[in-house]
Design a protein around this nucleic acid. Structure first.
Lengths: 177, 177
DNA sequence: GTCTATATGAAGATAGAC
DNA sequence: GTCTATCTTCATATAGAC
């Protein structure tokens, strides 16, 4: 995961991977049939982790509460898995079509989780949004974007950032008008 | 640009590039000293185009008007240059440190353009935001995200998408409260 | 300015000993 | 289950003819 994130899938050799885990290149083939399967297993594992972690935090709550839980969860989880998040976005094209399909379905399930919350809030009148599906993609992109600039020694703590983003999400769905 | 976007910098060979433009691999070295310079020139050209296109559309207007112009410009421009946008985000790590520095400075200049607008609107009371810098990064991530899912044959036209996003941006900065 | 040919190195994957 | 050795292919880059 580290090597793929730092150098890109195509640029990482099986020899480098072997060196990182302390074996020779040939030995890797006892664990994976080929390099491509290795990538797929990493991405699949990441998506499974994401969905099950999210499922644990889900409550049957008011839309605004659910949205807050989602936003805070998303920032925390994606911050803790930078490498996996990066390669999940970047290396999709290196998957075979069927492997790609699998990952995309899991991703869609995560997005639907959010758009369902937004749709419920739209119907209840808690949120004033034009399009729950588009809004969910916009919110996810915005939240995931933290990963591209956040530094541990930066101006703001992750707690502060989480708070600022949650307020922006609240505004975005225009709750409270 | 197309090849890098589709396959990733490391996975594209000089032979493939040569074939795409109709020459043999050796002939490419009359145009670029090496593969790395080729990548840098593409990214540099993209950032220069972005900044000069943006500069053309800038007006000395009310903050809300300026924000609208920025948001609409961003969606349009990035939609028209998907390949360049994708590799600008993905292939930064394949640049030498000084080439990376150059691109990052140009990117920061673009981000500052937006955060200046947000800061002006914050001071004038037009916008209610916590942190102009963070808000600018959030808005840019959100708008750029359109590229990851937009399809020409999708449910919504780019005009409609532009409109929906502009309304979300308006809400996000809480103008009109 | 393009070509063919090539130098040099490294890639993914496999074979077979231990 | 790991090792060394190797097959085969392809990479970037260069040399020198035309």
């Amino acid at each position: 995961m580290q090597l793929f994130a730092e150098n890109g899938y195509a640029a990482v050799s099986m020899r480098q991977i072997a060196a990182k885990v302390g074996v020779q290149a040939g030995a890797l083939y006892n664990y994976t049939p080929d390099k491509q399967s290795l990538l797929f297993d990493l991405l699949k594992g990441h998506m499974d982790d994401l969905l099950s972690a999210r499922a644990e935090g889900r409550r049957d709550d008011a839309p605004a509460k659910q949205l807050e839980a989602f936003a805070r969860f998303h920032i925390r989880f994606h911050h803790a898995r930078k490498e996996a998040v990066f390669i999940s976005y970047m290396e999709l094209r290196n998957l075979t079509p069927e492997n790609f399909e699998t990952i995309e379905n899991l991703r869609r399930r995560y997005e639907t989780d959010l758009s369902d919350i937004l749709e419920a809030g739209q119907k209840s009148g808690d949120f004033a949004i034009d399009d729950p599906k588009i809004a969910s993609l916009a919110i996810i992109a915005m939240l995931t974007g933290v990963n591209t600039w956040y530094r541990d020694d930066g101006r703001l703590s992750l707690d502060e950032i989480e708070q600022i983003y949650w307020r922006m999400v609240q505004n975005l769905v225009a709750s409270g008008r």
